[in-house]
Every structure is written in structure tokens, then in C-alpha cells.
Simulated scan of single mutants.
Amino acid sequence: MLDDFIVRAALAGLGVALAAAPLGCFVIWRRMAYFGDATSHAALLGVALALATDLPITAGVLLVALVMALVISTLSGRNVSADALLGVMAHSALALGLVAVSLLPGQRVDLSSYLFGEILAVTRFDLAVIWGGAVAVALLLAWRWSALLAATLNPDLAQAAGGNPKREQLILTLALAIMVAVAIKVVGALLIAAMLIIPAATARPFARTPETMAIWAMGLGALAAFGGLMASLEFDTPTGPSIVSIAAALFALSSALAPLLRRA
């Protein structure tokens, strides 16, 4: 069955959607949209590192995404405001990645596949990496869900109850870095943040609890992945942007329905 490239692409999109959705909920609850953007933009620098050192692309992206996330966590709250710091880091990482890739000797790199994804070229190994990362993220979140939720909704109360909000932030950072590393093949560095944020934002009007919001986000993310893949095949459009476009259409529909749901 996995010899069929469409089936592999669908499974890859589903894996990324299931990993990104619950993380996206935390990104929204913590108001960390730029954080996800900065971490995903660093992926291109990870691609350059991997190509220069013969590392697997996923390993290079994971390493750089993790370093970027840790640097942002360390520097936030210092002399620069959080949004300014994240804006600087996001665009600097993307620019440095583009420059680094262009300077690689003897390498002819198709940047569009790293910027916007290449889901139709997913191999069995890529599929194993994507689902391995998705399972790792799921296990991390299941293990720390209550502590992460407490540290997100009320850090002071969580600390007073014996929790460690800084540790939970680092666990969330690790999960984000894993997600970025496995998603670059599917939607690319420029669109990873969209798959984090849009399904979770779409799910918000339908949810009454954090858990139901995460479940709704996973379902909507999977629907966007399948819908974008089918639209790409039908209309011969780029698959990564098509997935995000379907996610955006679902968000518009959710926003239109939100007033009706509030009155219900």
C-alpha cells in the first residue's frame, strides 16, 4: 500500500496535523505565535547545517530549531521586548538560512521544497521520521499535560503548588523543535507556523475545555491536510500552500459560525 505516493503523502499530512494541533493550542494559550514562527524559520538554517555536514536533514533542523527555541527562551524578558526579539530572531534566522544554503560549495539546492514543502515526494523513511516525531510529541504532551496546562493558564499558581513553569516551558520548546523538524518535508519552513496556529484557532469556538480544543484542532488539521492534498492533485497547485489555504478557509468558516455558537 505504501508504494502509492498519494497514500504516503496523506499519511505524512495526517502525522504532521496530529503533532501540530495540540502544540498549536499551547502556542495560542501562551500567545506565542511569533515563537513558533521564529523556530520554524530557523529550519532553513538547519537544512544548511545538515547539507554542510552530511547530517540527515531532520537531525540538522531539529538541532537548530532546538537551539533557536532555547536562545529565545533565555533572552526573552531582558532589555528587548518579547515581540521585537521574536521578530528579529525569526527574520534573521530565515535570512541567514537562505544565505548559508546559497554559499554551500558544490550543492544545487531546491529551496522551494524546503520553504513550501514537498509532501508528494515523501519516502517510507520520511514517513517513519514524521510518525516517530508525532508519537514523541504525543507522549511528551500526554506525560506533562496537566503540568503544562497549569503552567500555561496560571504560572504563579502552578509554582505555588510546587510546579516548575520554567521546566514546562523547556518541555514545550522541545516538543515544538521536534514538530518543526518532522514538518519541514510536508509544509516547509514558511508554512509550519500556519499549521501550528490555524487549526488551533479554528477549533477555539467549538471547544469548552482545553482537551476538546486539542481534539477539535487535530480533526481540523487532518481535514486541512487531506483537503489540501486533494485540491493540489485536482488543480495542480503546490501542496503545502494548498493545505494551509484549506486550513485558512476552515478558519474563516469557524469565525463566521462563532457568533451562532456563542448564542447556542
Results as ranks from 00 to 15, higher is better:
Phe206Leu: 12
Val122Ser: 15
Gly163Arg: 08
Leu141Phe: 07
Ala128Leu: 06
Ser113Ala: 11
Val80His: 01
Ala95Trp: 10
Ala82Thr: 11
Leu85Lys: 00
Ala138Asn: 08
Glu211Tyr: 04
Asp54Arg: 05
Ala43Thr: 02
Thr39Tyr: 09
Val135Leu: 14
Trp216Lys: 02
Asn164Asp: 02
Pro205Trp: 06
Leu66Lys: 00
Lys185Thr: 13
Leu51Trp: 03
Leu191Cys: 05
Ile171Ala: 10
Leu153Pro: 01
Ile119Gln: 12
Ser254Pro: 09
Leu220Val: 05
Arg30Asp: 11
Asp54Val: 00
Leu70Arg: 01
Leu98Phe: 07
Leu44Tyr: 14
Ala249Pro: 10
Ala121Val: 13
Ala134Phe: 00
Ala17Met: 13
Pro238Tyr: 05
Pro205Thr: 03
His41Arg: 03
Gln107Met: 02
Leu148Ser: 02
Leu96Trp: 00
Ile6Met: 10
Gln107Lys: 07
Leu229Pro: 01
Gly117Phe: 09
Ala10Ser: 13
Ala160Val: 11
Ala10Gly: 10
Ala136Gly: 01
Asp126Cys: 04
Ala189Lys: 00
Ala100Val: 14
Leu70Gln: 09
Gly117His: 00
Ala12Lys: 14
Gly24Thr: 14
Gly162Asp: 09
Pro165Ala: 11
Leu51His: 10
Phe235Thr: 09
Trp29Glu: 13
Gly13Val: 13
Arg31Gly: 15
Lys166Gln: 09
Leu94Pro: 03
Ala38Pro: 12
Ala50His: 11
Ala9Cys: 12
Leu223Glu: 06
Ala12Arg: 04
Pro56Val: 15
Trp29Arg: 11
Asp3Pro: 02
Phe35Gly: 03
Leu220Trp: 14
Leu51Pro: 00
Phe206Arg: 01
Ala9Thr: 07
Val135Gln: 09
